[in-house]
Amino acid sequence: MSAALSGGFADPAIEGAHAFRAALEAMARPGTIRRVAGAAPPAPLSPAAGVLLLVLCDGTTPLHLAGAWDDGAVRDWVRFHTGAPPAPAGEAAFALGDWPSLLPLERFRAGTAEYPDRSATLIVEMGRLAPEGARLTGPGIREAAHLSLPEPLGPLRENAARYPLGVDLFLTCGAHLAALPRSTRIG
């Protein structure tokens, strides 16, 4: 249990501010990759995903842990550091896992016509994250950006086609993160 008590921010206000700024820039500029620091969560949770949970989750954000991330050590760490209540996919504000364990995306809240913001944010753990691969266009992108998106791409294209409804993604790998909002069109 003591492992669950360590690995959080040493200075939550300052480290949280820097980490959120990286997440904000990532969401505003899809395809760009940022480095974040401050969290040392238990495996298989990556440091970047741990940082996102510390910055964004609390007792008001139901969290769905998927696949290998629905693990005792991860649950203990999340519960101690964020207090986010565990939730099934359909009720989650945030969801965490690798791509196969998160699919299908239809399970998650995509917002309503009046309130598209009431949708889930998925944190997708990636084996690698590089500025190459799928061609991205849309808000936040000057002409086009490239990002190693999780395969298969089909669910992501369907998600973008539902705009302004849909889920938004953070992609995490080690200490790095990128974002893929629903507004991004995937070539």
Partner: peptide, 17 residues
């Protein structure tokens, strides 16, 4: 701040909303 930060990310994801 966490509450406002979550709103900011959704606002960026759906520009103009």
């Amino acid at each position: 701040k966490r509450m406002i930060r979550r709103a900011l990310l959704k606002a960026l994801a759906v520009p103009g909303l």
